[in-house]
């Protein structure tokens, strides 16, 4: 069979296939009523300035901003236990510094039995230093207080 015969057979096959495709696909109904409604809707949009629906990029943008706002809010709420933790640490420090053992060693020191710094002194100084550092970190600066800082 020649090349030309093959091509003619292919063309005929293509035509038959396209006919079958069209039949199976069917026509697209567009009634006069649907056409009128289409035009009315379109012209209303034109007269209304062609307002457009929110597109996907816009929605994604809004979602990202909302997620960031929620994250910031959660971050603020989540930081509160940290403040409580610092406060409780300070309380614990004060309790510790006033404990019986420390008081006893302090009393001994005050009585001049041991002229050097006692363990209680050292521990007290160390805790006091840490507490001051924490206070410096947590407490608002003068400038922040002037700016109206509130906890």
């Amino acid at each position: 069979m020649s090349v030309h015969q093959d091509e003619r057979r292919d063309d005929a096959g293509d035509r038959r296939f396209v006919d079958r495709f069209r039949k199976a696909w069917g026509p697209v109904e567009f009634s006069p009523r649907a056409a009128t409604a289409f035009s009315a809707r379109l012209l209303a949009r034109v007269d209304g300035g062609g307002r457009r629906r929110l597109g996907l990029p816009t929605l994604i943008g809004v979602a990202v901003v909302a997620a960031m706002a929620v994250a910031v809010w959660i971050g603020r709420v989540g930081s509160l236990p940290d403040v409580d933790w610092l406060a409780s640490l300070a309380d614990a420090e004060s309790v510790l510094s006033s404990s019986t053992v420390l008081d006893a060693e302090e009393a001994t020191d005050d009585a001049g039995v041991d002229g050097d710094a006692t363990d209680a002194d050292n521990e007290d100084l160390e805790l006091n230093h840490e507490y001051q550092m924490l206070l410096a970190w947590v407490a608002p600066s003068d400038q922040e207080l002037e700016d109206g800082w509130t906890p």
Binding site: G13, F17, V18, R20, A24
Partner: peptide, 15 residues
């Protein structure tokens, strides 16, 4: 056409 005919070889059934 080549691709569609390959994928829809049974299209004649709807006739």
């Amino acid at each position: 056409l080549k691709r569609l005919r390959l994928e829809l070889d049974d299209l004649r059934e709807v006739e």
